[in-house]
């Protein structure tokens, strides 16, 4: 079992299985998934598309399609989290666990101002006044190193580039002070040059706020300098789980080796 009953533990997932309704009965998408994240730790989840990476994230936030069957145990922040108890699951959203999506241009509402999207959940979870929420939003945008935070609050998503939007999305995810951030391929839709900046922001947030991050990617190399621990997913199962350095140096599972071989190092691209 990968989850140590460590006092440092923030999230533990044990024997998680998910089945989605299909035309010929339930289709298993996750089987016997176990992983754990400690406070202030970045854990990587790697695997190709369809391997169950995003399903894991969606299960944690109860964002699965209707009719999904979930089993297994979840423990978050020292308490058991019952996945059948929707109220309890939803109470964790935003405040306990937050998420950053792959395509920031699709994950921001095109008709609502950045200020509104940054503050609406702050006011719900933290009970801040409009002025307090605005001040915090400016602070957050400074932390993700977005130029002119005041002006950004009055702007709309279409006025920003993908990289800027992803910074805004990260700020928005952090707005209600979550303890775990799920980053679902947050750099895949961005230029290689912009990627490094986003990764830097995530790492500094981790060290500054003791934030834990579950970093989902299809690119094992991205995890090298970022994640202390990595789980490799294939066909809805965790096929290998080890400290990232060990995993990269001596991958045990053939699928991990294949993933590593398939990788193109951005530094090698002329």
């Amino acid at each position: 079992m990968s989850a140590d009953p460590d006092t440092d533990e923030l999230l533990a997932v044990e024997n998680l299985a998910v089945r989605l309704p299909g035309p010929d009965g339930p289709v298993p998408v996750l089987e016997d998934v176990s992983l754990s994240v400690r406070r202030g730790e970045i854990v990587g989840i790697a695997g190709e598309s369809g391997s169950g990476k995003s399903m894991t994230a969606r299960t944690l936030l109860d964002l699965l399609p209707t009719g999904a069957e979930v089993s297994g145990t979840l423990r978050f922040d020292g308490a058991e989290l019952d996945h059948r108890d929707r109220k309890a699951m939803h109470a964790v959203r935003g405040h306990g666990i937050a998420m950053v999506f792959q395509d920031p241009t699709a994950a921001m509402h095109p008709m609502l101002s950045v200020g509104r999207q940054l503050t609406e959940h702050m006011r719900v979870h933290l009970g801040l006044t409009r002025t307090q929420a605005k001040a915090r939003a400016v602070e957050l945008l400074e932390q993700v190193r977005l130029p002119d935070p005041e002006g950004a609050l009055r702007s709309y998503p279409h006025q920003f580039s993908g990289g800027q939007l992803q910074r805004i999305a990260i700020a928005s995810a952090l707005a209600a002070r979550p303890r775990l951030l799920i980053a679902d391929e947050p750099t895949t839709a961005l230029d290689v040059t912009v990627q490094a900046g986003i990764l830097g922001v995530l790492d500094s947030l981790r060290s500054d706020f003791d934030l834990s991050v579950l970093f989902i990617t299809h690119d094992l190399g991205v995890l090298a300098s970022l994640a202390s621990h990595t789980c490799v997913f294939q066909h809805g199962r965790v096929v290998e789980s080890a400290p990232t350095a060990d995993l990269l140096r001596s991958p045990e599972h053939p699928y991990t080796r294949a993933l590593l071989a398939a990788r193109t190092d951005p530094a090698e691209v002329p």
Binding site: H90, G94, A107, P110, V124
Partner: peptide
């Protein structure tokens, strides 16, 4: 089906808010 509706739920907004401010608005 849009990501920003999923994102609004993930932010922990009340279902009403997502429905009227995000869904209907779009």
């Amino acid at each position: 089906r849009k990501d920003y509706i999923t994102a609004a739920h993930a932010k922990g907004l009340p279902a009403r808010t997502v429905r009227y401010r995000h869904l209907l608005r779009a």
